[in-house]
């Protein structure tokens, strides 16, 4: 892992949002409410690697993805792209970064312009960046991107509108748009959660192909642990703004240590008959991110929580190579 090229390096990243309060609240100088969406995350993503970010709604997965792409302001910490800082770069460099780091969104029913033909949608990044000389080049590049995304022959799709395509085909169009500038890094935010089960695997296979053929790095955001296991090299489990466990995909599934990962794993639906399965369904929901619990942030829902968990925030402990967990109890098991 060390000798591979680091594409993205996140260092102690924090993203906070202030909640707008009423005039009266301000008048009486009540305490400002701050949402700590991302609360101190460090993460490296290497060339040709898929890292999955798994967690419930409200854990800060999407915010982290957007912060890495510089689509949302960072409160503290830094993001390095190929070793260079992204945050305060000048406009030209930011533009170059935007070409090389792309995003695929969750809902292909909303992310495509319903009034643009497929060729216009896919070729738009080329135009925005003034990378085109001739109309022939525009078509040629679009065809290549569409076929690279599994829409072949591309001529059948170029002059159609999104409403004529199925969900899976739309997501492929969105992917074509994201690879047309030949990026190094893509954030895929729940790219298959809106799709039917029968077409999901097709999209996942496509992402794997892109990774292998172009040596692309991916941050794959999902709430589905089994999907992340299928396609990623490493899995990071996120809870309330922090990564609580990270390691190689197989290691996380077969040998996870954090009680939260274990709970997530125990409730994953599996295509088998399984009565009386030992499921650990957690009570309630993720706590309010304006009031993160003291000590371990998972202590309000953890059945093993004891004194230390309420007072001291657990740090990462290495379980094995590349497998780290932030839990007082898991560390003790060693």
């Amino acid at each position: 892992m060390e000798n591979k090229n680091k594409i993205i390096s996140v260092k102690d990243l924090k993203v906070q949002f202030q909640i707008k309060q009423s005039f009266l609240h301000e008048l009486f100088a009540k305490k400002q409410k701050i949402v700590k969406a991302v609360d101190g995350i460090s993460l490296d993503i290497h060339q040709g690697e898929i890292v999955s970010l798994v967690g419930e709604s409200g854990s800060g997965k999407t915010t982290l993805g957007k912060a890495i792409l510089n689509l949302t302001p960072i409160t503290s910490g830094e993001v390095l792209f190929k070793g260079k800082k992204v945050e305060h770069t000048n406009k030209r460099e930011l533009k170059r970064f935007r070409q090389k780091a792309q995003m695929i969104f969750q809902d292909p029913y909303q992310s495509l312009d319903p009034k643009s033909m497929i060729i216009d949608t896919v070729a738009e990044p080329l135009e925005v960046n003034n990378l085109l000389k001739t109309a022939a080049e525009r078509k040629e590049k679009t065809v290549k991107a569409l076929e690279g995304s599994g829409l072949a022959p591309a001529e059948n799709y170029l002059y159609r509108y999104p409403y004529e395509l199925s969900g899976g085909q739309r997501q492929r169009v969105a992917i074509a748009g994201s690879i047309i500038l030949d990026p190094d890094f893509i954030v895929a935010d729940e790219p298959v959660s809106m799709l039917d089960v029968s077409v999901r695997t097709g999209i996942l296979k496509l992402l794997l192909e892109l990774k292998n053929a172009r040596n692309l790095a991916f941050l794959f955001i999902t709430h589905d642990l089994s999907l992340s296991w299928l396609i990623s090299d490493r899995i990071a489990i996120m809870y309330l703004g922090k990564i609580v466990e990270i390691g190689p995909a197989d290691e996380i599934i077969k040998n996870c240590r954090h009680p939260y990962t274990r709970a997530l794993l125990s409730i994953m639906p599996i295509p088998e008959v399984h009565r009386n399965r030992n499921r650990q369904v957690l009570k309630g929901e993720i706590p309010d991110p304006t009031e993160i619990p003291r000590g371990c942030r998972f202590n309000t829902r953890c059945e093993f929580a004891h004194d230390r968990c309420y007072n001291e925030e657990p740090q990462f402990t290495a379980i094995s190579d590349n497998h780290d967990v932030a839990c007082h109890l898991a560390a003790k098991e060693q």
Partner: peptide, 23 residues
């Protein structure tokens, strides 16, 4: 059978499930 095998099973080996071709 196809519908069932389009789900990953975390208790088995890690293989990409088959997609159902066509629409």
């Amino acid at each position: 059978h196809k519908l069932l095998s389009s789900f990953p099973n975390i208790h088995r080996e890690r293989i990409m499930p088959e997609a159902i071709e066509g629409i």
